[in-house]
């Protein structure tokens, strides 16, 4: 703090900016940690492979979601099947 600092108004509060950015990123990262355990992407990929043996679907048609409610967890699995005419002939 030198002489000239006294005449400079303290507008430039970079710490406030740091705090705001951290609060956002930390909340985001905590959220994704909680909702998706490590094995979810692998689970999704394997499910996709199994369903594809019978029905042609792509990645966006498989939705896997884990919810925590009270003392238990709910694994929600949503596979959107294509319309009949797009379906591959049965084996």
């Amino acid at each position: 703090m030198g002489l000239f600092d006294y005449f400079r108004s303290p507008q430039n509060k970079s710490a406030a900016l740091a705090k705001e950015r951290l609060q956002i990123i930390v909340a985001h990262e905590r959220g994704s940690r909680r909702s998706s355990p490590d094995y979810l992407p692998a689970l999704k990929k394997e499910l996709l492979e199994v369903v594809r043996k019978y029905v042609p679907i792509d990645q966006s048609q498989v939705k896997v979601h884990l919810d925590r409610e009270g003392g238990y967890e709910v694994l929600e699995l949503n596979i959107t099947l294509p319309d009949d005419e797009q379906r591959a002939p049965p084996h």
Binding site: M1, P10, N12, K13, S14, A15, A18, K19, Q23, V26
Partner: peptide, 18 residues
């Protein structure tokens, strides 16, 4: 402390809150 006081550094309270 003096940098935190000036608003150039995250304060103890900021870090604790996060």
């Amino acid at each position: 402390p003096e940098r935190a006081h000036r608003g150039d550094m995250l304060s103890v309270e900021d870090v604790l809150e996060i």
